[in-house]
Computed example of a mutant assay.
Amino acid sequence: MSVNPTVNRRAAAALGAIAVAGSLFAAVPAQAADGTGSPSAAPSAAPSARQTPKGDGAKGICKRLPKTEERVAKALDRLNGDATVVGSIARLQQRVTDAKTAGHTPIATYLNDRLTARRSLLTTLQTRQSDLKAVATWCAANNQGSTK
């Protein structure tokens, strides 16, 4: 008697599919029993992301303060640069002027909207820089945020 290998593979695949379907059907009543329709988990195993903060994060803010001040200063230098500095307000203003001169109205409108956003970013970063000066003073007076 000869055995056809194709039939054996098909039979094995069918048995595998039945086994998977059976395990899925067996899990449904267990999930439905708790009324949630999802696998039950112990309430005490809540992820740490759901816990309330234990403080204001002053220690971490004080620790990152030098890098933060450096990034803000670098961004302000770039924004306040002349037309040769990539990312500066002056360079974007020049691009808007060039687009208007060339008659590319949609491009000029798009660039002008970016210019408006960049100018508001300048104001935001200037405010942040002054806030960081106050934070630096506080960190120095409070042991880098280690005291409570």
Rank of each mutant, 00 (worst) to 15 (best):
E70I: 02
S44G: 15
A136P: 01
V86A: 07
G145H: 09
A49I: 14
A108C: 01
D56N: 04
A83I: 15
A140M: 14
F25K: 11
P5S: 13
V135N: 09
G57C: 06
T147G: 15
A11D: 10
V72H: 00
R71E: 08
T101W: 03
G22W: 11
G37N: 09
A27P: 02
A30Q: 04
T6I: 10
Q31C: 05
V85R: 13
Y110A: 00
T123I: 12
A136R: 09
A108P: 01
T6V: 10
N143L: 15
A58E: 05
A83K: 15
A75L: 09
M1L: 07
R114M: 00
G35Q: 11
V72F: 00
T97D: 10
A14R: 08
A58T: 03
Q94C: 00
K74Q: 13
T109F: 05
V20M: 12
S38M: 13
N142E: 06
V86Q: 07
G57K: 07
S44C: 14
R118V: 07
P106F: 13
A19E: 06
V3K: 07
V28P: 03
A27F: 03
L125W: 04
R10F: 00
N80C: 00
S48K: 15
S23M: 03
G57S: 08
L24P: 05
P53L: 08
Q93F: 02
V85G: 07
T124E: 12
T123S: 13
N112I: 03
A27K: 04
I89K: 10
P66K: 09
T6S: 11
A21I: 08
Q129Y: 03
R78T: 15
L79W: 06
D82S: 04
T124K: 14
G87S: 10
G103N: 10
T6W: 12
L76N: 15
N80S: 02
A12C: 08
R78Y: 11
I61G: 11
K100N: 06
G103C: 10
A90M: 12
T84H: 03
A13I: 05
L121I: 01
A17K: 14
L92G: 12
L79E: 03
Q94S: 04
